[in-house]
Design a protein around this nucleic acid. Structure first.
Lengths: 336, 336
DNA sequence: GGCCCGAATGAAAGCGCTTACATCGAGATC
DNA sequence: GATCTCGATGTAAGCGCTTTCATTCGGGCC
């Protein structure tokens, strides 16, 4: 039983090892700048005293915390959970740790969260998408906090993302090629959400190229319920033979609604998703969707951000999306 | 354009406001200990200088960081993503932030992560389950880091969780009542995982009470694939009429395997899950499972941990689980 | 009217670490 | 052999904030 309640400090270690505190510090942070024999002594002292550096003191003196912040809309969305998970795994172990905050898709809350993370000394930030008050970017610039944006692509900032417009365009094109002409879309909320907006716009544009327009568009909150309700609403229009969804969760909801309405998928109606998260493989039929490399994106974002923090310049990474044709698409019913 | 590159400090604010640094500090941390007029002056100065307290200095001087750490197996598992999300949302805003680390279900990695979080000055920790090297608990005790365990229940530690054994027992009992006698189980890896072990043991015990034993047990890694493969293997034994799964993901995998094998669920085989995560509602048929209040658990854990950090005593919280009968269960085929 | 009390504020001592700079020696150089 | 060089280590000055203790001042009370 150790009686002492307060922790050992560098001074204690230095005294025990018979060296100066500077040497102790060097042993811990730049071992190669210390001769082997000395290092042994110090490390032995560290072990005996069960010494752990004080975080606050370290941060204060070195002006670095080794903390990286991430603000995502919510971890309940598998897309972000996976991305963040991969991001965290790709952080140099022992050097960086991940501080996570969620905004609940609320711009004001996101701003607070960013401020909170920076207030906690975050060395860098991972943010989702581009849409946000320019003042935030200015504020980050003033404070010299590097950041990487993910799940989108653009020119003004460093990002690790993909092209939402191009991704959905490929899907819409496939649906058109199948022969569908009466198409509807279930989109996520586009306000302040460039991912949802990009997908909606990309889809509209592709349709326009073919001289068409959506037969109906519903913009709903993220979740199975939203997708289900929107689908039921849209299908009042019996002419519709295909429904493009802004993400897999919406599509899964739509699929469930279709089942309940007694509609056969894909015979009666084609339903497509976006993201290719796990659930896309366990619906029946399995979901035709657009694969987004969430894991890879998390990894690239981590690499990028660590580079920026190290003072290197970061080259944005644009990852490819890929059409995954599974079981929820088919030519429209009439086309025999 | 502000030319100054270094940030304002308490001294700058104090000087501008014409007060002492002590007063500035009070204004920021205990506003009611300062007279209104003074507070106004100080706050004005804070605004003009765009002042943000230095995190390291604050942590060093106050011996608190306002950082709470959480180590979960992985965020890819919706169960933990939701729990952590709720936990984070329940942290007193502005006061605490969440540092998340994942262990990948690896005990050694978990230990490193715990150490890393504590090294980063975590004021408290959220951990999953009980199974871990006792040395870790000792280490935390020595360092006086409070922690709360979740997703399990037990006596030796403060927890916010539920009874895995009781939860699965209810399910097994229902399956027995339905008339099934030839039952198998697909369990998650039990090594170092008290949740999986509790479920497996709870199920075995309940069966034993009825004088029965599992007709087969497969222990597989988390994931759809594991569930699917295990199901295919187990069903070599054509006598089996019901398969209890340790969690919903395994069950969804099993369900997919059943579809592919041409088995009808629930007519040919009953499949049950555990957790009641989102996917339980979008499989078809929808999954019969055991609901675990993940969100509530995250909230309770946050409350509990914040109490502990504040020096209050924490009363563990045992949350109830609930059987959710949906579409994947039925009496065995022969029982007409 | 003098005294005491408490609220508001100030002075200054750290908190534990990093790091620029100084120092010390031993080998290299001529 | 004296001087120079450079690597290893020590010295000590902060980093920016919180907090204890002291001080001041305006009333209330006898």
């Amino acid at each position: 039983m150790t009686e002492k309640t307060s922790h050992a400090t560098v001074d204690d270690v230095a005294r025990l090892a018979g060296v100066s505190t500077a040497t102790v510090s060097r042993c811990l942070n730049a071992p190669d700048r210390v001769v082997a024999a000395t290092r042994e002594k110090v490390m032995a002292a560290v072990r005996t005293l069960n010494y752990t550096p004080n975080f606050g003191a370290k941060a204060l003196a070195s002006k670095r915390t080794g903390i990286i912040g991430a603000v995502v809309p919510t971890l309940e969305n598998a897309v972000f959970a996976h991305g963040v998970d991969a991001f965290e795994r790709s952080l140099e172990p022992g050097k960086f740790a991940l501080l996570v905050a969620s905004s609940g898709y609320d711009a004001t809350r996101e701003k607070h969260q960013i401020e909170a993370l920076v207030a906690r000394g975050a060395d860098g930030l991972l943010l989702v998408g581009f849409d946000r008050d320019p003042a935030i970017y200015d504020w980050l610039a003033v404070r010299k906090v590097p950041y990487v944006l993910a799940w989108s692509s653009g020119e003004q900032h460093v990002f690790a993302g993909f092209d939402n417009q191009a991704g959905i365009a490929a899907m819409v094109r496939m649906v058109l090629d199948l022969g569908h002409r009466n198409i509807a879309m279930i989109s996520g909320k586009t306000l302040g959400n460039d991912r949802a907006r990009g997908r909606l716009e990309g889809a509209c544009a592709t349709l326009a190229e073919a001289g068409l327009a959506f037969r109906g568009v519903a913009e709903v909150a993220y979740g199975f319920e939203g997708g289900a309700a929107a689908f039921a609403g849209l299908m009042q229009d019996r002419a519709i033979t295909a429904v493009i969804c802004g993400n897999d969760v919406l599509a899964a909801g739509a699929l469930r609604a279709a089942h309940r309405m007694g509609l056969r998928v894909p015979e009666d109606v084609t339903i497509t998703g976006f993201d290719d998260i796990d659930i896309a493989e366990i619906t029946s039929p399995e979901l035709t969707t657009v694969r987004v490399p969430h894991t890879r994106m998390g990894e690239e974002a981590a690499r990028l951000l660590q580079d920026l923090i190290a003072g290197k310049s970061g080259e944005s990474v644009l990852l490819p999306t890929e059409l995954v044709a599974r079981g929820t698409h088919a030519p429209p019913a009439g086309s025999a």
